[in-house]
Design a protein around this nucleic acid. Structure first.
Lengths: 199, 199
DNA sequence: CGCAACTATCTATGTCCATAGTTGGTGGCT
DNA sequence: AGCCACCAACTATGGACATAGATAGTTGCG
C-alpha cells in the first residue's frame, strides 16, 4: 500500500508519465522501493479516479499520445496524511535468517557460499547508497535538485538532511549484515574445520 | 516460496498436524517467519501430494479426526537441496525508509513519533530474540531439545551454535535500527527546534 | 529507406499473503 | 445440561507483486 505514496512523492516534484515514473523507480528510489510498470500504470489510473492525480493527454509526435499525471491538492493532502500515520510493521519473513537457523543441514561449502553471498549483496548495496549520499551532498542528484528548486529556502536543509539520514540508516543496516556475514564465515570455519578439511 | 521449507524444518523434528504447525509458527519460528493457518493447510496438502510429506489420519476422540504429517525421505532431500541453493534477494521494499526520506513533509511531532515507534518496535524484537537465545543456551527451548534428542552427538554443538548465531544477527540488526531511530530523534530536534517550540 | 533502440501502455497469469470468516468436534467446569 | 475454551480444518475474497509478453508509435543512424 506504499506504492501510491512513493508515486505521490515523485509526482510532488513535477508532473510525469507512467513511463517516467517507472524509470525513476529504476534509478533514484530504486534502492528504497521498487515497482514494475505493470503495477504503476493501473495504480496511476486508480489514483486519478480517486482525485489524487490529474491525468492529462499529451500528444507526442504526430500520432503518439501519452498521459502525464500531475499531483492535485487532494494528492498532496493524502501524502501529508500518510506522513502523519504510523508505519505498520509487517510480520517477519526473512529467508536468509530462516536458512541460517538450519545451517547445520548444509555442507560447509554451501554454508560459506551463503554467507559470502550475503556479504557481497550488502556490500554492493552499501556502496550504492554511499554513492547516493555523495550525490545528495554534491547536489548532483537530479530529482533532489528539482525538488529543492521548488522548495522554500528555509526547508532546503531539512529536505537534504532527511534524505541523507535515510540512506545512512540503510548503510548502517548493510554494514551490520556484512559484519554478521563475516562472523558467520568464522563460525562455519570453527565448527567444521578449515576449508576442504571436512566433507 | 520459503513457507514449505519452514514447514519441512519443523517437521524434521517430529510429525505434526496443521494445527500444531500453525501454533509453532506463532511461538518458535514466529520471529523469523510467520504464516497463518489458511496458508499452512493447503501447503501441507500440496506437499503431501508432491511426496515431501506423508499424511496420516489420526482419530481424536470418538468422532474427531486430524491429519498428522510426517516428513518423507524425499522431503528431507528437498530441504537439503534448498539449503544448497543460494537465497534470492528480493528487491527493496521498505516503507519505513520510504517515509523517512520525506520526513520534511511531516510535522515534527509526527516525525518524532515515527522514530519512537521504530525504536519501540525494534526494542521489543531485540528483547524477544535475546530471550530466545537464553532459552537456546539454557536448553529450555522445547523444539530445540527435541531436535537435539534426535541429533547425533557430534552435530549438537553446530545445531545450537547456528541457531544462536541467527538470533544474534537479528539482535544486531535490531540494535542498528534502534541506533538509527535515536539519531533520527536528535536530527528532528536539531532541524525543528526542541519539543513544542515549533509546529 | 529500413532497422534498431527507445518510448508508452496495457494485459494476462500466477503466487504469496492478509483478513475474516465458517464448521464441527473435544474436554472441562459449573 | 449448558457453556466456554480450545483443537482442527477449511473457504472466500482481495490486495500486492512477479513475470512475461503484446502492441504501437517515435527517433535516429547508416
Amino acid at each position: 500500500m506504499s506504492l501510491r505514496y512513493a508515486l505521490l512523492a515523485l509526482l510532488s516534484v513535477e508532473p510525469m508519465t507512467g513511463y517516467d515514473l517507472a524509470k525513476r523507480f529504476e534509478s533514484s528510489v530504486a534502492f528504497v522501493w521498487h515497482a514494475p510498470d505493470s503495477q504503476i500504470y493501473p495504480e496511476l489510473r486508480k489514483m486519478a479516479k480517486e482525485g489524487l492525480l490529474q491525468g492529462e493527454e499529451v500528444s507526442w509526435g504526430p500520432r503518439g499520445k501519452k498521459t502525464q499525471y500531475r499531483i492535485t491538492e487532494e494528492g498532496r493532502a493524502a501524502f501529508r496524511a500518510w506522513m502523519r500515520e504510523p508505519v505498520e510493521y509487517s510480520r517477519e519473513r526473512d529467508p536468509v535468517h530462516l536458512k541460517a537457523a538450519y545451517l547445520e543441514w548444509a555442507e560447509p561449502k554451501a554454508a560459506r557460499e551463503h554467507m559470502q553471498a550475503h556479504i557481497d549483496y550488502h556490500t554492493m548495496r552499501r556502496d550504492q547508497w554511499a554513492e547516493m549520499i555523495d550525490q545528495l551532498r554534491a547536489g548532483t542528484n537530479e530529482m533532489l535538485s528539482k525538488r529543492l528548486a521548488a522548495t522554500a529556502e528555509a526547508d532546503r536543509q531539512r529536505t537534504v538532511e532527511y534524505k541523507v539520514f535515510t540512506y545512512e540508516g540503510l548503510i548502517a543496516r548493510a554494514e551490520t549484515e556484512i559484519e554478521w556475514g563475516k562472523r558467520g564465515l568464522k563460525l562455519i570455519d570453527a565448527l567444521s574445520g578449515p576449508v576442504g578439511e571436512d566433507s
